[in-house]
Design a protein around this nucleic acid. Structure first.
Length: 321
DNA sequence: GACCCGTGCCGCCAAC
DNA sequence: CGGTTGGCGGCACGGG
């Protein structure tokens, strides 16, 4: 699906940083870099005019809800105010109509509550800031709220945790539409880390930073350099001088995920790079990434990226080199 | 897609 | 006594 028309829905009390993140990613022309995409970008609100923000000053929003028609992506930033208050019916209707018409809907932080009121979270996996997660789940019992992750891409509906996770989600959208290379380029311009996976923990369960000597950083680096090898949990644990059980616990404490899942994520990233930057056959890429054979690569690629390696290559390969 | 076997993950508990 | 470790068993999932 093409992504050209992006709309931001700014409720009263809109959070300026979250709005800014969305505007930075989708709303800023970058004529000096032709590789980076341009969007048809606009901010809209229920009653155009002055909209109060979370930080005491107002902003002028030109467009009304009719601007949502035909949008490919609708982004809803966080807002300050009562999350449980049901928003204006015309706002909810506009969101629902746009969603039915095929628009993807994205929220940052408490923006998820607007999606919830519109019924867009029912039956879906989603997330929000960990401080709000319980309230979101209570208010919308049919939603499957995962309070641990940075963001969730449920296809039609994308939700993210607090503030900075909005950056990660926006870059994730760019990555899945335009490829690793474009996303990395944009991340570099924004001076943010190129890729934090959605499954990464919102916070790690460690009050005091571990001393470098006992952290898993070195092991993770080593794993990234040896993705083609057979990295069984048992051997990794031995390498870290721990029992498999303790290793698993420490791994989750530091990365927020499990060894195997982390490994698969890294392997997918490598596969994406090789698909984009080389002409290696799928089988060779599978071997290089540690998936062994092409069917296994296809299997995980489908699960993690929702498409096939060939299709991904056709979309994103840069033959010009 | 249906299978089967092996592996990874996690809750539980006992032992420091 | 609370906290950490490590082993066991059940279960789910990956891979053939």
């Amino acid at each position: 699906m093409a992504l050209t028309t992006v709309r931001v829905l700014a409720p009263d009390g809109v959070a300026v940083f979250e709005l800014g993140v969305i505007a930075e990613v989708f709303g800023m022309p970058r004529p000096d870099d032709p590789l980076l995409p341009d969007f048809d970008f606009a901010v809209c609100t229920v009653r155009p005019g002055e909209v109060p923000t979370s930080s005491g000053f107002g902003i002028t929003v030109e467009h009304g809800l009719d601007a949502l028609a035909g949008a490919d992506l609708i982004a809803v930033p966080a807002f300050s105010g009562d999350e449980e208050r049901v928003p204006e019916p015309e706002l909810l209707e506009a969101l629902r109509d746009a969603s039915v018409a095929g628009a993807r809907v994205l929220s940052v932080c408490s923006g998820a509550f607007l999606l919830g009121h519109a019924g867009l979270l029912d039956g879906r996996r989603c997330t929000t800031h960990w401080l709000y997660a319980e309230r979101l789940q209570r208010l919308f019992p049919a939603a499957r709220v995962d309070p641990r992750v940075l963001y969730v891409d449920d296809g039609q509906v994308l939700t993210s945790a607090g503030t900075a996770a909005g950056i990660d989600l926006c870059l994730h959208v760019i990555r899945s539409e335009f490829g690793e290379k474009v996303a990395n380029r944009l991340a570099r311009r924004m001076v943010v880390p190129p890729h934090r996976d959605g499954g990464q923990a919102q916070y790690v369960d460690m009050p005091i930073p571990v001393r470098p000597a006992e952290s898993l950083d070195d092991l993770l680096t080593w794993m990234r350099e040896h993705l083609a090898d057979d990295l069984a949990v048992e051997t990794l644990a031995a390498r870290a001088h721990m029992s498999p059980r303790t290793f698993a616990r420490r791994f989750r404490a530091e990365t927020g995920t499990t060894p195997f899942s982390w490994l698969t994520g890294q392997r997918i990233l490598l596969a994406q790079r090789l698909l984009e930057e080389t002409d290696l056959p799928i089988d060779a890429i599978a071997t290089r990434c540690g998936f062994g054979t092409a069917p296994v690569l296809r299997h995980h690629f489908a699960r993690w990226r929702g498409t096939t390696p060939q299709a991904y290559r056709r979309t994103f390969a840069r033959r010009s080199a």
